[in-house]
């Protein structure tokens, strides 16, 4: 054979091998791709599609209405309240939750005997389901026998209808939520703290700087990638809150806790208004997308990576 024939034969073998690699790779990925396709990408597209239709109670699209579902939403007070409740809920839970988890993580990152016990205590809520936690907080918020009103009574302050007063309901749910989410954020932040190179602290000790200086100049900057991650996850989680609302307030009183996912649920499965629910779902998707993209845009510039 000539060189050219040899090379052609080689190319042929290589092409066959590349094809076999492709087939193997796709075979390994196929189960995941299939499920993502059926249970994530398809329904996402379908949601967008449904949001442009009027549907019957089974969710079958009947009349194409274009942007009407969205226009109706923006004009409805109910949706405005829901959007406001969601925004407030995010505002109440995310910053406070992260500050709390960071503080706990810094506390638990000391080298003390028995520190493992405290780490376990701080991370305990990670093992708690939303349903179980909600039931416990329901009891704590109980106006007559709950702990909070008992404490107020002991201080001679009149009791509060925590979950029944539109003024307090969202705040109450937020407090419970912060507690529920602490465990996860704590675990990740503690991991982030433990990844910081100890020699940085040793050289700071030799330089003799104060604890708060160390916190501002070493701990927080070095922790920033972790904080960045936790913030993104917390924001997205806050947008997706459902369980505690369903169990504690059912979106009430006076829709004051009717956050977006609960509103979608109610429209789709209780009011059978699938078109409106889908339109809200699209808005939820956009909100999460914007948050993620913003986080990455800001994060890329500001976060200090090791």
């Amino acid at each position: 054979m000539t060189t050219i024939q040899h090379e052609l034969a080689d190319r042929h073998v290589e092409r066959k091998r590349a094809w076999s690699n492709w087939a193997t790779g796709m075979l390994f990925l196929l189960p995941s791709l299939l499920l993502f396709g059926v249970f994530l990408f398809y329904p996402m597209v379908r949601t967008v599609y449904l949001s442009l239709f009027l549907t019957d109670s089974q969710g079958v699209p009947i009349v194409f209405v274009g942007w009407e579902n969205f226009l109706n939403l923006f004009q409805s007070t109910s949706f405005q309240i829901s959007a406001k409740a969601t925004a407030l809920f995010v505002l109440y839970t995310v910053p406070a939750g992260i500050v709390l988890a960071t503080a706990l993580a810094i506390l638990a990152n000391q080298k003390l005997r028995g520190i493992g016990l405290f780490r376990t205590m701080f991370s305990a809520t990670m093992g708690m389901s939303v349903a179980a936690s909600s039931v416990i907080w329901m009891f704590l918020f109980n106006p007559s026998i709950g702990l909070f009103n008992r404490i107020l009574a002991a201080l001679n302050i009149p009791g509060v209808q925590w979950l029944l007063d539109p003024q307090y309901a969202l705040l109450s749910v937020s407090i419970a939520t912060i507690w529920m989410n602490t465990g996860f954020a704590f675990l990740i932040l503690l991991g982030g703290l433990q990844n910081i190179d100890q020699s940085l602290y040793e050289s700071a000790r030799i330089a003799g700087v104060s604890e708060s200086y160390k916190l501002r100049k070493i701990t927080l900057p070095m922790l920033s990638p972790t904080l960045f991650f936790v913030t993104t996850v917390s924001l997205i989680n806050a947008f997706q809150t459902f369980g505690q609302i369903d169990l504690l307030t059912k979106g009430g009183p006076m829709e004051s806790t009717n956050v977006i996912v609960y509103s979608i649920y109610k429209d789709a499965f209780i009011n059978y208004n699938v078109g409106s629910a889908s339109a809200q779902a699209v808005l939820l998707f956009v909100a999460v997308l914007v948050v993620t993209v913003l986080q990455f845009k800001i994060g890329e510039r500001k976060v200090h990576y090791q």
Partner: peptide, 11 residues
């Protein structure tokens, strides 16, 4: 070209 014992082995 890579040859092992005189036989082309590239592929």
């Amino acid at each position: 070209e890579l040859a092992l014992d005189g036989k082309r082995a590239n592929a």
